[in-house]
Amino acid sequence: MTRKVVLRSVIPVVLIIAAAVAFAVFEPIQVLPRIRIAPGYLLVNQDAETITSEDVRGDIVLYSFTYSDCGDECAEMNNTVAEVQSRLGEADTGDTDVRFITISFDSERDDPEMLTEYATRLGADTAQWEFATGDPTHLENVVKSGFEVYYQQRSDGTFSFAPVFVLVDGWGVIRGEYRYQTNASDADKIVHHLDILGEEVRNSHGAASLAYEAAHFFLCYP
């Protein structure tokens, strides 16, 4: 009789402790969803060098989409990229490099010289933050169909476009899309997501990877 009573009181306690341990172990694991395959591309950068989606395989890349003759419309986007770049220390990505690539819709006007001038104007370090554009048809496939970013040239030569950032992992998979629809600043969110992605990359080998795959399975998205 007493044994039964003891069992009855011990089992719930054990269960609660087990649940707490499980929570402590699994709760910190957050992953970014694997949204789509990022498009393959071949573009030309500010140094007149080709840059392809294969060149950045293995690196985490934050893409933004603007053009050099853009003015105030793009200032906010470029400020966000600059802010993320300056706050990279807050995100632990380990050995994985983080790069920034700004793709210009204006392939006619934005030759390497214009892109270099644009980079200089923004004070961008082109070793980490590159500017690129390419053949107009290829550009449409890459930006509109692949990255799903809308743009359209107006009759006065300027562009109307949707301000979007896209985060791509080293496996060439889109992991984040930022379309100005959150209350948090984009820079805050992107830095936080870089940290989450960095942790997943660091744990992509061995037993830990199973826990991260499970996190994907159970949709542990931030």
């Binding site: 395959i37 990022a38 498009p39 393959g40 392809t52 989606s53 048809t137 496939n141």
Partner: peptide, 28 residues
């Protein structure tokens, strides 16, 4: 082909080959 490849995350470009093979193509 360019459009399909792009959407599958694939990129390709012509590279120089030997005289016997003609050009080769680097691709994902």
């Amino acid at each position: 082909v360019n459009r399909v490849a792009t959407l599958y995350g694939v990129v390709y470009r012509q590279a120089e080959g030997t005289e016997a093979t003609g050009y080769t193509i680097d691709h994902t």
